[in-house]
């Protein structure tokens, strides 16, 4: 369990480019930015291949790689250049990946899958298919409306005129048209959908 034994076992577990990466990290610790960028660039593919074993999608893999790189950056002072680089790197990477996996498992355990996507609200009515209304029923219902309301709904809703155009065509004021149209819609709802809650 001594450092020597630890170093020996670490050397056995070292990554292929371990010695070069160790030298690059030593330079990075001394403030050599180019060496640091080169090191992070070189270890990224290795981390990506490691991450693919733990996370399912490409996006998740890239997130995991970035998480490991950020962790390395935060604790790069813990690397001792006299010891192999591989065990240090692999320990950080695996612990971060396992942590990620654990978080994912925890999150999935708290999620509830919706079994029926069509049902979105608890109220029964909103989950029923829309009832189709025949145009003849609409025409008949419009015919039953008082004159002012009928004129307003025909001009504004059926002929799709603007309030100004409808006002000029009917001789009613804009305010009166708005009120008549609102009342007409309510009356049509009562005639066409008598069971609907209001």
């Amino acid at each position: 369990m001594s450092d020597t034994r630890s170093s020996r076992s670490a050397a056995r577990d070292d990554v292929p480019e371990g010695q070069r990466w160790s030298a690059l990290m030593a330079k990075a610790q001394a403030g050599d930015k180019a060496a640091y960028v080169r090191l992070l660039g070189e270890i990224s593919p290795y981390l990506r291949s490691l991450a693919r074993r733990y996370v399912p999608t490409q996006d998740a893999t890239e997130d995991a790689v970035q998480d490991i790189l950020l962790t390395i950056h935060g604790i790069r002072h813990t690397y001792d250049p006299r010891l192999p680089f591989g065990p240090w790197l692999v320990t950080i990477a695996k612990r971060r990946l396992i942590n990620r996996l654990r978080q994912h498992t925890r999150m999935v355990a708290h999620e509830v899958a919706l079994e029926d996507d069509a049902v979105t609200f608890a109220d029964d009515e909103v989950n029923l298919p829309d009832r189709k209304i025949h145009y003849l029923d609409v025409r008949k219902a419009v015919g039953e409306l008082p004159d002012g309301q009928r004129q307003a709904v025909v001009l504004l809703k059926l002929r799709e005129m603007s309030l100004k155009e409808a006002s000029e065509a009917s001789g009613q004021s804009i305010g009166a048209l708005k009120v008549s149209c609102h009342r007409a819609i309510k009356a049509l709802q009562r005639i066409l959908e008598p069971s609907r809650k209001r």
Binding site: A28, Q29, A30, G31, D32, K33, A34, Y36, V37, L40, G41, S44, Q66, L69, L70, H73, R76, H77, T78, Y79, D80, P81
Partner: peptide, 14 residues
């Protein structure tokens, strides 16, 4: 990200 981390890589005491 690597470029950002590189820019932030000041000398540190191991």
């Amino acid at each position: 990200l690597i470029a950002k981390l590189g820019a932030d890589a000041h000398a540190i005491q191991p």
